[in-house]
Amino acid sequence: MAQKTLLSVEGLELQYQTRRGVARAVDGVSFDILANEALVVLGESGCGKSSLAKALLRVLPRNVHRFSGKVMLGDTDIMALSEEAFRRDVQWTRIAMVMQAAMNALNPVVRVGEQVAEPLRVHMGWSRARAMERVARTFEQVGVSTDFLQRYPFELSGGMRQRVVLAMALVTEPELVILDEPTSALDVLTQAGIMNVLKRIKQEQGTSFMLITHDVATSSEIADRVALMYAGQVVEVADAQDFFHAPAHPYSQMLMASVPRLRQREEPAHIPGQPPDLIDLPSGCRFADRCPSRFGRCAEDPEPIRLARRHHVRCWLHAGRSGGGGA
């Protein structure tokens, strides 16, 4: 595999100012995505997945306290770009996103064909005719009949609406598509249909994906790589094969044991306890108080440890024999 690196993220931070204090939603996150690779970001509700996505696409709320780190898109240092340059050269054209619950945010009074054409017309300045032609092609790719171009959102089922917002992200043929929980609200057949579309587009167009979900089974439908987030940090990042079949972090292991298996008899186990408050983070390992393998050293903050090529884990259990032991 000699794929080029498309996106490289290093030490990304996004903090929100709130009345109670500063929430560290993305707290020193590093990973990369190769060309034509799909990275799945897993993690419990509130761990910072959507914040990570919004940071990459710079769609930020007003109460940002700190936004820093290094993000390279190909050879471009996109964190160094001005707002205007970022909007012109990156947003939608090179990185596009399907936001969480986007299918419910479609404009009810505008025909879906027009809505999907918007990125082409607004960001790329295309004529209406040229844009509609591309939209029709994208509809076919995502499995929506072109008869639907003229329909309004309420005339479509949930599954069709989700395909339409997917078309909106794909229509500019971006290099990276970020999908935030694209199928969580849909039933299993619709989910499987949409994952089929993503797989085909990845194969045919060489697009890279970052898919955010808390559903491990769905994630396995596209993942080449998996990053697991916990309390604002990536605690493990690995190839899908390693993550699903031999995860290294105790949290990853417990997460895998909590997946209900249709074809196996083992009862799924839940992970007791709650994640920490992002405004009042504990010192040391953030998972320690829920971790069955906790030991003295967990009072220190673990740095990412390299287990293999492109496999990193934030856990002292892997600090090598000499590093193991007591506090």
């Binding site: 069709m160 396995s220 298996r261």
Partner: peptide, 25 residues
Amino acid sequence: QSLLAAIADVDAANARQQREVPGGE
């Protein structure tokens, strides 16, 4: 049968094959 076929058991190989889904709505 199609409902069951649509459900993945977690496996890295899933990403490399299309899942059988009945057409239509």
